[in-house]
């Protein structure tokens, strides 16, 4: 059964009691929460994800709840816990849903080192994956969101998982996190997208999550072969420009954008450099999403 098989009330009840076990790609995550905003967010954005209530082993056990003090009522806050451990300070209750997504990112990037975990989006066409590593503000999520509404498969908008042995890209398809103007831009770009409720005044400004395309979620067990590494940069007014990027420098940039690069030591270096060897590397400056879609379409046809 998928999450959509439950009513939002039934989901809320399960979340409050034993928690729900949701399959997200290779991970099984168990989520508990007493908050209706979490039930609503999950019901909307994880509708297509399988529930595995009978599974005996969950990779991560997370919960998100109000604190047991006065901040339950007064300027209400919420706390993210993974198995009782609190990695972040409490946040205003309005940010509960994004906090859950950030918390899951934290679990995967700090507790599970079976992959090289690159901070970047990754999408796929014809079995070939394009990695978009980039610091915040480069427009990577916006670009990724636009491309996945135009025929690319979403593997992840935030964490690229590279298998250490085979270099395959392992999907971790979850809702796409959009910030500030990007939310309206994507809603204008593709009318059919489902956008979660926006949380305001977060660390990153206003944040909302876009539901991942159903087709991408359905293929969450299907890996892809890395083919391109593209460093995107949004610049107002420029015409889309795709330039080859030197491999040595691309490798360094990948290392800089990898959460567990030094943790993996030599293996991290080998994986990053083999990955770059196998990929064509580009920088991509753009301002218009339609241009970007055309350019990437051409690239995929080559």
């Amino acid at each position: 059964m998928n999450v959509s098989g439950l009513t939002v009330n039934a989901l809320a009840r399960e979340l409050r009691r034993e928690g729900v076990q949701i399959r997200i790609g290779t991970y099984l995550v168990r989520i508990q929460s007493s908050l209706s905003s979490i039930a609503q967010g999950l019901h909307l954005l994880y509708a297509d994800y399988p529930l595995e209530p009978e599974a005996a082993f969950a990779d991560f056990h997370v919960s998100i709840d109000p604190p047991k003090n006065v901040r339950r009522w007064l300027a209400p806050q919420v706390i993210f816990r993974t198995d009782g451990f609190v990695p972040f300070k409490p946040l205003p209750a309005d940010q509960a849903y994004p906090l859950l997504e950030w918390g899951l990112n934290w679990c995967i990037s700090t507790q599970y080192h079976r992959y090289l975990v690159i901070h970047g989006a990754v999408i796929e066409k014809n079995g070939r994956a394009m990695i978009l590593p980039a610091p915040p503000g480069s427009g990577k999520s916006t670009l990724c969101a636009a491309l996945v509404t135009r025929g690319w498969r979403l593997l992840s908008d935030e964490l690229t998982l590279v298998s250490l042995d085979t270099l395959e890209i392992v999907p971790m398809c979850r809702p796409v996190s959009l910030k500030n103007e990007s939310i309206q831009i994507i809603q204008g770009f593709e009318k059919t997208v489902t956008m979660g409720r926006a949380s305001h005044d977060t660390n990153k400004g206003t944040v909302a999550h876009m539901r991942a395309p159903t087709a991408s979620v359905m293929r969450s067990q299907e890996t892809a072969v890395p083919a391109w590494v593209v460093f995107p940069k949004y610049e107002p007014g420029v015409t889309a420009q795709l330039d080859e990027h030197a491999k040595a420098s691309a490798c360094m940039k990948i290392a800089d954008n990898t959460f567990n690069y030094s943790m993996l030591g030599l293996r991290g270096f080998q994986t990053a450099s083999n990955l770059i060897d196998r990929c064509d590397c580009y920088t991509f400056n753009y301002s218009n999403l339609d241009d970007a879609v055309t350019r990437f379409h051409d690239l995929a046809q080559q």
Binding site: F57, D59, Y112, H113, M263
Partner: peptide, 18 residues
């Protein structure tokens, strides 16, 4: 060890080595 917990154990070995 079954595959799922094995992954976590191997990851921890890596962290400890590092």
């Amino acid at each position: 060890v079954p595959a799922q917990p094995q992954s976590h154990l191997e990851a921890a070995l890596g962290v400890a080595h590092r």
